[in-house]
Amino acid sequence: MKTFNISHRTHNGLEVLELQGELDAHTASRLEETLKELIRSNKGRIIVNFSELEYIASAGLGVFMAYIEDVRSTGGDIKLTNMNDKVYNVFDLLGFPTLYDIFPDESEAVEKFFDDNP
């Protein structure tokens, strides 16, 4: 079985989740738990860095669909960064780029958070 890992760090008051491995219907619950925990702790300014994520299925995208409204309603956001082409393609096929901030690099997401809400 392929692995999936999440590491969490804080950067200038922003929560950064780094995803690694394969995110599918089996591993999506772990991402969901992590996001729920951040929302419960009122940590709604979230960046998800996909640089080490090799694969994503729609169950993984579903987690971002289910929680984005909760996060935005408290003034936060989930911004997505550093996707490889194959992972980006799945987000693109499902129309995410019009509704989510997706950046090539994490630093651009950091900048956007501080531009929008310094």
């Binding site: 169950a59 995208l61 579903g62 987690v63 669909m65 929680y67 409204e69 499902l94």
Partner: peptide
């Protein structure tokens, strides 16, 4: 789907 906090169906 997002407005209704739904996932799946994709």
């Amino acid at each position: 789907q997002i407005a209704q906090k739904k996932r799946g169906g994709m």
